[in-house]
Amino acid sequence: MIADEVSRITGRGVAETRRLSGGDTAAAFAVRLDDGTEVFAKSASPSMPGAAEAEAASLRWLAEPGAVAVPEVFGDGANCLVTEHVPASSPTARAAEELGRGLARLHASGAPAFGSPPPGGPADAWIGLAPMRNEPEDDWPTFYARHRVQPYVRRAVDEGALDSESATVLDQVCEDMAELAGPAEPPSRLHGDLWSGNVHWGSERAWLIDPAAHGGHRETDLAMLHLFGCPHLERIVAAYEEVSPLADGWRDRIALHQLFPLLVHAVLFGSGYGGQAARSARRALASRSH
């Protein structure tokens, strides 16, 4: 039971648990401890070994002073993570601008290599319900093609979510990745799954939750924010660029950076996303003429 896990992790008795809505990877709870403190707890599926450990390591790595707000980690167990509980509120322009500046500072704090996991985090991690391998490489194009795009192209084909013609286009992107990637940049410290659902708006600021953190290219996090939209997105981007201007042509590369999450969605949710991934691949290839 979640109360027993929370009690074991925190060393405190549990007075009340309340199931929260949302989330597709774990059951989520607001838990009131016997001293009145309210914490947040997630109970991960046994089919996702190491998920709680990976998320705890990610949150700790993202908790860079002066960067973004992330919930404090109180502890994790085999299938349970306990963190600070942040009540939800409404998005504001001010919080969005603070998020943009903080995200720029987070990225600038760096990573040992492209594909490096968080300190103490497992190489075999998760992005939502899907496995994600963190394997360090010397350059981003090699990392992204070898450990993000290619494995999911193969899975999507095997599961009927991607046809052979589309797979050929995606293979061409991987072959041309160095040419498509834009100016070389040092590895950034990424949230790694920064779609709008993982931006949690609190009463005064935006918090980042449910990370799949690793060393990567900073444009990846921004492309994820564009994938399904985000409140005040252009304010976030403008504030980001106040701190750390993006390389010329970054908007043309959004489609390239969205390939991995689209392929993950294709494997999890079907061929509709496979078609979207193929269209993004064609846009990425066409961007060379811009």
Rank of each mutant, 00 (worst) to 15 (best):
Y240H: 13
P118Y: 10
W140G: 02
P187C: 13
A255K: 03
A130P: 00
L208Y: 09
S45K: 11
E55D: 08
A95M: 05
A178G: 15
S287V: 11
A56T: 02
A88M: 14
A56N: 03
P131K: 09
C174D: 08
P91K: 14
H232R: 13
M1C: 00
H147A: 06
H147I: 01
P122L: 11
H147E: 11
V153L: 08
S287G: 10
Q276I: 11
S43T: 14
I209A: 09
E185C: 09
Q150W: 00
P46Y: 05
A52E: 02
G270I: 08
G77A: 14
A286Q: 14
L180W: 07
I209N: 02
F74T: 02
V237R: 00
H232G: 06
S196D: 12
L20W: 10
L227G: 06
L162N: 02
D193S: 04
A123Y: 00
L59F: 01
F40S: 08
P131Q: 09
R218D: 07
V82Y: 03
R105Y: 11
V237I: 15
A281R: 05
S280H: 15
Q172Y: 00
S166L: 07
R105H: 11
E97A: 15
I2G: 01
R218T: 07
G192F: 02
Y240G: 06
D193R: 06
R105S: 09
A278T: 07
G36H: 10
P141M: 02
L99H: 08
T17E: 13
E38M: 10
A28N: 13
R60T: 12
V73R: 08
L129A: 15
R101T: 11
I9A: 04
P91E: 07
G102F: 12
L59Y: 02
R146Q: 14
S90Y: 05
P91G: 13
P112F: 10
G115L: 03
H107W: 10
A69C: 12
E179D: 15
C80H: 06
W207A: 06
H191N: 05
L170A: 11
D76P: 00
R218V: 04
E242Y: 03
D138L: 13
S45A: 13
G160S: 12
A178I: 00
G274N: 08
S43N: 04
V199F: 09
G192P: 00
H147G: 04
D163I: 10
A223R: 01
L106S: 05
R133I: 00
L262R: 00
V173S: 09
A30F: 05
L285Q: 13
K42W: 00
R253L: 10
L190S: 05
V199K: 05
V243C: 10
D171F: 01
R251A: 12
H191K: 05
P65F: 05
V86S: 03
A15Y: 08
S109P: 03
H200S: 09
P122S: 12
V169R: 14
A125M: 07
D124S: 14
V73F: 09
R12A: 15
A30G: 14
